[in-house]
């Protein structure tokens, strides 16, 4: 059995760890509330944007807007939204496993978050060409951050460097559940949009102001901007939730460990006392 001093040292160190994880849990919890709120309040907008796009796209499909028009895919760009820091459970691992499974020579990546960058750089046959760009991730990100990424991708798309854009991120379901999502974004296909709840009223093609072409030119890039922005918010909310849960578990485990160690410490101490009494008693008997 370990000496009492050794056990005391371990208890102290585990308690310190628990304090740190507890603090990280609190920080993550407060960040989570903000990020969750932002991710959730954007959802109605996302839904209606889907609805508007959906009622617009089939009507003017014959116009063959480049963002709607699928072309043979030589190079598919995947926007990977991971986190900057670890200690958030299996969040990144799940995402990376899925990406690894789909990895192929036709893939190019754009990363957001440091974890994703180092993972993508470690993929087989990774060259400067497979990792197109790396954007930083901020807690208080704005729509313009999303737009910058989106415009970079759209530029590459219109110049023909890439033929399709996927988004890989974690979808925030609730504080306990985050789902890995890899979905195609560009070319925009009506079947990828969320089905609207309201009965679809077909819009007569004449009734677009200004012309359908101009409307599409305005709506589609914005649609991509918005989707990327929302994916970023979604990932942030997931990250903070996952970290909070991970840290909560860590704190609980540490507390349990402290309990076990305290029991062991008390046993060791009691044993020491018993032994001492025994020794004194033996010595006394020997003297008599």
């Amino acid at each position: 059995m370990a000496s009492t001093r050794e056990i005391r040292r371990r208890i102290r160190s585990v308690k310190n760890t628990a304090q740190i994880t507890k603090a990280m849990q609190m920080v993550a919890a407060s960040k989570m509330r903000r990020a969750q709120l932002r991710a959730l309040e954007g959802r109605p907008y996302q839904k209606l944007l889907d609805e508007v796009t959906q009622s617009l796209v089939p009507q003017v499909g014959q116009l063959r807007h480049p963002l709607l028009n699928p072309r043979p895919v030589r190079r598919r760009a995947v926007l990977v939204i991971s986190t900057d820091k670890g200690l958030c459970g299996s969040l990144n691992t799940n995402l990376f496993r899925e990406l690894f499974r789909r990895h192929g020579p036709d893939r190019a990546y754009v990363s957001v978050g440091r974890r994703g960058r180092s993972f993508l750089a470690s993929l087989p046959n990774s060259t400067g060409e497979t990792l197109l760009a790396d954007f930083e991730l901020r807690d208080n990100l704005t729509f313009r951050d999303g737009k910058r990424i989106s415009r970079f991708l759209l530029d590459k798309f219109s110049s023909g460097a890439i033929d399709a854009i996927d988004v890989a991120h974690t979808h925030f379901v609730n504080a306990l559940v985050q789902a890995t999502v890899i979905r195609p974004l560009v070319p925009i296909a009506p079947q990828n949009l969320a089905p609207s709840e309201a009965p679809a009223t077909p819009v007569v093609p004449d009734n677009f102001e200004p012309s359908p072409e101009e409307l599409l030119d305005a709506l589609l890039p914005f649609f991509v901007d918005w989707n990327i922005y929302q994916a970023l918010l979604d990932s942030l909310a997931s990250e903070h939730s996952a970290r909070m849960i991970a840290m909560k578990n860590a704190t609980e485990n540490a507390k349990e460990l402290v309990g076990d160690l305290t029991l062991e410490y008390n046993k060791a101490r009691q044993e020491g006392i018993t032994r001492e009494i025994l020794e004194i008693a033996t010595a006394q008997i020997a003297l008599e």
Partner: peptide, 19 residues
């Protein structure tokens, strides 16, 4: 405010999409 001027909308308006 629509792109091509103020737009007044009453019920039973014709379906329309605009900026």
């Amino acid at each position: 405010p629509g792109e091509e001027g103020e737009m007044g909308v009453y019920p039973n308006h014709e379906p329309l999409i605009t900026r």
